[in-house]
């Protein structure tokens, strides 16, 4: 009876072991994707701003966000904003935006993460929804960005940001004339 019972359990044990091994294998294989995903989520939370955020807290958040970038990143956010190529300039720009807007709420609507075969670089395409409150008025926009990542000292850092234009704006809109 003991032998029969053992035989009955064996297929389940094999299946369970196979599932655990498969899960561990997939997690190991996707470890870079998972790290980038976690980093993106931390960034998203950092971008949010509550209405009562102090100037000091805003500065700290701006430094925190800029810290996710390489020393000399290439940041292009669109036709109406200046391109940035320096982490410090980026921190200043983020701090300025945070002090100008009363509230910021962000959510990542969709994303794809592709890690290069050598695991030293990665590309993320993001659709980010941002809701901004400014002087009792609000606006909501979904914007697509491409983030280029580089691995530096084992950490994934953002080295490039550019808008993805699925709908390409006409020249006059692009130039903001």
């Amino acid at each position: 009876m003991t032998a029969t019972r053992a035989m009955g359990w064996r297929p389940w044990a094999v299946l369970l072991t196979a599932a655990v091994v498969l899960y561990a294998g997939l997690s190991w294989r996707n470890r870079d994707v998972n790290r980038i995903r976690r980093r993106l989520e931390r960034l998203r939370v950092s971008f949010n701003k509550a209405p009562d955020e102090s100037a000091l807290a805003s500065l700290r958040r701006a430094q925190e966000i800029a810290g996710a970038f390489t020393e000399n990143p290439s940041v292009r956010l669109g036709p109406y904003l200046p391109d940035l190529f320096n982490r410090q300039d980026l921190a200043v720009a983020i701090h300025h935006a945070r002090t100008t807007l009363d509230e910021i709420h962000t959510s990542i609507r969709d994303k794809t993460i592709v890690v290069a075969a050598d695991r030293q670089s990665a590309t993320t395409d993001l659709a980010v929804e941002g809701t901004y409150v400014y002087r009792d008025d609000w606006d909501r926009q979904v914007t697509e960005f491409r983030l280029e990542w580089a691995r530096q000292n084992g950490e994934w850092m953002i080295q490039g940001v550019e808008p993805l234009e699925v709908i390409k704006p006409p020249r006059r809109v692009r130039e903001g004339q």
Partner: peptide, 13 residues
């Protein structure tokens, strides 16, 4: 309906 990065965010134009 225009697709963005995936299918969870779309443009309606």
């Amino acid at each position: 309906v225009i697709s963005m990065v995936g299918r969870r965010a779309l443009y309606l134009k």
